[in-house]
């Protein structure tokens, strides 16, 4: 297992959001986590990234406990996140946004090559490289957010709702990119509302309901699961 959550509890103030979540991600997989609004998906990713406190339980990465380590250390260990709502630095240029993604690695270590690789994959970002991040379109911002997270050269990439607010055409494009990233060797943990798309790229999936995992299966089985169909695939 590359990543393992064992009975993780987390929350805000008196509210407990995650009530003992256990999931595992194997090296090389794409794992999708489905769940309704407010189920705790983002909270889970933020707890992995060290932003939210893990109140109980353990998070293992490469066999080492990483819960409640500072966020920058988690990035250093090889987990980076493209957060919900993208959160591009609005007044940094596209290129500077990418540089920030590589912050933990320092300026030397092949930064220029990585930027070039991103630009080859996303020519539109190359065109916009000196434009301010806040002026990009939603789809461009999403590409930037994913690329920015990749700049850390993560072993595990956390993606929180990469399809949020994008047109269907762009969504397909983004998911193709996700598949391609995975093919090149990055393990991905994907949180999505768009269950259909998510299950089509993922190998396995979990269903999170009000802070608990209620279902776990291969993506193919989940797609044909009646309960999943009803709740997340729109019939």
């Amino acid at each position: 297992m590359l990543l393992q959550l064992e009975e993780v509890h987390a929350g805000y103030g008196a509210i407990e959001v995650l009530k003992g979540v256990s999931i595992g991600v194997e090296e090389g997989e794409i794992v999708a986590v489905l769940g309704a609004n407010g189920a705790g998906k983002s909270t889970m990713l933020m707890t992995i990234s060290g932003i939210n406190r893990c109140r109980q339980g353990r998070i293992l990465f490469d066999g080492e406990a990483i819960q409640n380590r500072p966020p920058h250390e988690i990035v250093q260990r090889g987990i980076s996140q493209s957060p919900e709502g993208r959160r591009i630095f609005p007044r940094l240029s596209v290129r500077e946004n990418l540089e920030m993604g590589a912050f933990q690695r320092g300026h030397g270590n092949g930064l220029g090559d990585d930027v070039e690789r991103v630009f080859t994959a996303f020519p539109i970002l190359k065109e916009r490289q000196s434009q301010l991040g806040g002026t990009l379109s939603g789809g461009e911002q999403q590409m930037l957010a994913i690329s920015r997270a990749l700049m850390a050269r993560p072993k595990l990439l956390l993606l929180d709702e990469p399809s949020l607010g994008l047109a269907p055409m762009v969504v397909t494009r983004i998911f193709n990119i996700i598949r391609e990233i995975n093919r090149q060797g990055t393990t991905i943990l994907l949180v999505e509302q768009n269950a259909n798309m998510a299950l089509h790229v993922a190998h396995r999936g979990y269903v999170l309901e009000t802070g608990r995992i209620v279902l776990e299966d291969t993506a193919a089985n989940l797609i044909s699961n009646e309960q999943v169909k009803r709740s997340y695939l729109g019939g």
Partner: peptide, 13 residues
């Protein structure tokens, strides 16, 4: 500009 995003990028805030 965005402290949370900076943390997620591994910037020691």
């Amino acid at each position: 500009q965005d402290r949370l995003a900076a943390q997620l990028m591994g910037i020691p805030v």
